[in-house]
Design a protein around this nucleic acid. Structure first.
Lengths: 247, 247
DNA sequence: GTCTTCATGTCGGAT
DNA sequence: ATCCGACGTGAAGAC
């Protein structure tokens, strides 16, 4: 069951380099654990002094440097990078590089405690529910959830300000812009809705009233005031019919 | 140099459970590689069919499930969760749980190819430059970069719409709101600046002219038009003096 | 705890 | 390639 995994304990720099090089060659997920320093230069720049970290190299060109804390890596490179393992000044080093924008990551190991090349395959795709797309489906299946008599006319309708989540008409024939959010919203979402409503009013030559409705589970105080100031409306709705939050 | 690392190849479920339990007990970073399925339920919900993945458990309660692609984990739990290794129906399983909000993650292994408990310490902090804070410092050190005669009066000045990055006065005594962005900005930043300017105009009782200036390396077309519509201004500046982008 | 905003955000989709 | 907005965004700071 396993020649899918090759690991080394306390490899010397040459051994580490060899395992990583072969791992990359074989499209394996490569893991390293040991004392290292990290330098990054690109969109921003950073340095990180010595410490024990877990480094992961993926066959798609991703690099991750994880400390013992936090969900996010302390340093990283996105997919599409080229990783170059090397021995320099007697140390095992990984150089990682990308272009557009140019970014460089260097991980320099004082000591490698453990190195692994993990070979596998992953045919499955994630199935996720409770997203904004689900909220949209929910409304299209029952537009009255927004307002009695609401009739969707288009989704992703283009305006000079961008695409509107749901565009439609109310019972009186007014244009309605609906902006969807899967979770509680703040002022930013009001800004978005404002831009769409303004753009549509311009587009429709002021012959039609354009209403803006923000649909989300709930809204912060500041956002509610902003909505009021700008004559926009709010409807409480979650992506999941089972979850009914108080407004 | 190494009783800091304990690893097992092809552990049976009981061995995997034992190593993970001891690893958690010792505040180690635990890694697992093998064929597994993943279920998540919480703010949203997801299922993931069988595939080979790398699972990382951190002593702070973080869990990460990484496939062979992408910078982001396919599933995860944030810091503060409790991880419970178990053997169920002859399979090694990790249950992870958090509260506020309640979220559950279950990783069920068909086979574990490799398991490791990695013990280390990390005393170093990341030193990062090229951030919005650096851009702010740059301007405070030389306010003329925004405009000749500009005089900062406060940073993070509070308004009913939130805190303004830099608040000051121009050579004519007009109030100036400066919104900083470390990189090229889109319509969202204009919305932000708009909210601050509107709030300040209200606050200052329309006795003073309030100018809004967006400072960033560059701006998208749509954002530029929005700025023009709303009588706001743009100044091109990067966080790093060395990097001078064309507007 | 909630609220607000920054981020080397990342990611996907459309142009 | 850039632009735009969603994300189980995460993380930090203020209140």
């Amino acid at each position: 069951m396993t020649d899918r995994v090759r690991t080394v304990r306390d490899p010397d720099p040459a051994q580490a380099r060899s395992l990583v090089e072969e791992g990359i060659e074989r499209d394996a997920v490569v893991t390293l654990f040991g004392r290292c320093t990290v330098e990054y230069d690109g969109r921003a720049a950073s340095t990180l002094g010595p410490g024990d970290r877990l480094v992961v190299l993926k066959p798609d060109g991703t690099a991750l440097v994880h400390t013992d804390e936090g969900q996010q890596p302390v340093n990283w490179q996105p997919p599409g990078c080229t990783h170059e393992p090397a021995v320099e000044d007697g140390q095992f080093v990984i150089f990682s590089e990308r272009t557009t924008p140019e970014e460089f990551l260097t991980v320099r190991f004082e000591h490698v405690d453990h190195a692994g090349a993990l070979d596998g395959s992953d045919p499955s795709a994630l199935d996720l529910t409770g997203t904004e797309a689900d909220l949209k489906e929910r409304i299209l299946a029952d537009p009255d959830l927004v307002e009695s008599g609401f009739e969707p006319r288009a989704t992703e309708r283009d305006t000079p300000a961008g695409a509107v989540d749901i565009y439609g008409e109310d019972a009186d024939g007014n244009a309605v812009v609906v902006e969807l959010k899967r979770r509680r919203v703040g002022p930013d979402a009001v800004g978005q809705l404002t831009r769409y409503v303004d753009a549509l009013e311009r587009d429709l030559h002021a012959e039609v009233t354009v209403r803006g409705i923000l649909v989300a589970p709930s809204v912060t105080d500041r956002a509610r005031k902003l909505l009021a100031e700008r004559g926009l409306e709010f409807v409480s709705l979650t992506p999941d019919p089972g979850t009914a939050l108080s407004e």
